[in-house]
Amino acid sequence: MSGTGPLGAAGAVLRRDLTLFFRHRSDIINPLLFFIIVVTLVPLGVGPEESTLRVMAPGVVWVAALLAAMLSLEGIFRSDFDDGSLEQLVISPQPLALLVLAKVFAHWLVSGLPLVVLGPVLGASLFLPDRAMGTLVLSLLLGTPILSLIGAIGVALTVGVQRGGVLLSLLVLPLYIPVLIFGASAVSSAAAGLPVIGPLALLGALLALALTLAPLGAAAALRISLS
C-alpha cells in the first residue's frame, strides 16, 4: 500500500515527477547541452593553451554546473503551478516540506546527477589531471543537491511572478557562492595534489544544513506564493 502515510505520499510525488520528466525529455537535456556549450566556449574565449585551461578547469566546470543547475530550476515547480497540481500538494494533509523534498530529489535525479556524470568528461576536455577526477565527481555529488535545495526556495518564491527567470537567478546565484568556493577549491586542491578532505567536509556540512532547512523554507515560500 502506498499513498497513505507521509512517506507513501512522498514516494508517489517522486514517482509522478520522474514519470513527467521522462515524458518531457528535452527539459532534462537542454540544461545539459547548456552545460557542455558553456564549457566549450571557454577555450574559444581564452585560447587553447593547456597550461591556462588546466588551471581554470575546476572553476569553469563548477561555474557551468552552477548555471546549468540554475537554468533547470524552474522545472521543480513551474509546470505544477501552471496546471494547479501544486495547490493540491499544498492543501494535502501530508507535510508539505516532505513533499517538497521528494520533488527536489526527483529534480536532482534528472538534472543534478547528469551533471555529476558529465563533469569528468568536460574536466578532461579542459586538461584536468586524472588524479582530480574522483574529487570532481565527489564534489559535484555533494554540491549539486545543495544547488537544487537552495534553488527550490528561490523557485517557490518566484513561481507566482510573471517572467521570474531572471529574478530567480538574481536571488539564487549569490546564495550559491559557498558551494562554488568549496566545490572548486576541492578540485583545485586535488589537481595540485593537496588534501581535499577539508572542502569536501564543508560541502557535506552545507548539504546537511540545506537538506534539513531548505525544504522547510521552500514549503513556507510555496504557501506564501499560493496564498
Binding site: I150, I153, L157, G160, L171, P174, L175, I177, P178, I181, F182, L202, L206, L213, G217, A220, A221, I224, S225, S227
Partner: peptide
Amino acid sequence: RTAARASSVLALVGVVNIPIIHYSV
C-alpha cells in the same frame, strides 16, 4: 502582503547564509 512575506523569507534565508558566505569567502 505577498511581496512582504516572500521577501521576508528571502531575507531570512540570506541571514542564515551571510555567515556561511562570509567564512567561505
